[in-house]
């Protein structure tokens, strides 16, 4: 059975804290997602996402603070713009944009975090393995 590989980027202030809360609350979710904690979702460069797809990720997840809640005021708006554009671009490159997900998850939303991760994992599972040629 195919198990998707999913790379996630969480901002430190909200989503990573939300993921921690999911942990503290012992809410189980699939292990396919492995997170990288950055200070803000706005640190994520489309380059990092493409690097994930190129190196075998079947899905990429980005979690930031709710609009208006970004610890750095406007970071998540930058993220939203970038990801929206990037989704169009990857579609042109032949990658289903559903493999890229941006969600706002607050530090208080442990439950929501685990549910979204479950749901996204299932979604990527349904899409099947992403076949891309690994970069030499």
């Amino acid at each position: 059975m195919y198990e998707p590989k999913i790379v996630a980027f969480f901002c430190k202030w909200c989503t990573s804290a939300g993921a921690d809360l999911a942990g503290t609350s012992r809410l189980k979710y699939p292990p396919n997602v492995v997170g990288i904690r950055v200070m803000c979702s706005s640190r994520i460069d489309p380059e990092h996402i493409m690097a994930a797809f190129r190196n075998g990720a079947d899905g990429v997840f980005i979690g930031g603070c709710h609009p208006g809640d970004c610890h750095y005021q406007t970071g998540n708006y930058q993220t939203l713009k970038r990801i929206t554009l990037l989704k169009q671009m990857i579609e042109d490159l032949g990658i289903n944009p559903q493999r890229l997900r941006l969600e706002w998850i607050s530090a208080a939303e442990g439950q929501r975090f685990s549910e979204i991760i479950k749901e996204f994992t299932q979604q990527v599972k349904n899409l099947g393995q992403l076949k891309s040629e690994p970069l030499q």
Binding site: K5, V7, I36, V38, R43, D45, H48, A51, G56, A57
Partner: peptide, 16 residues
């Protein structure tokens, strides 16, 4: 300490 190279290397390590 959050450079592009670092983040890309982290991604690669996760994907193994």
């Amino acid at each position: 300490n959050f450079t592009d190279i670092q983040l890309k290397n982290m991604v690669k390590a996760i994907l193994g």
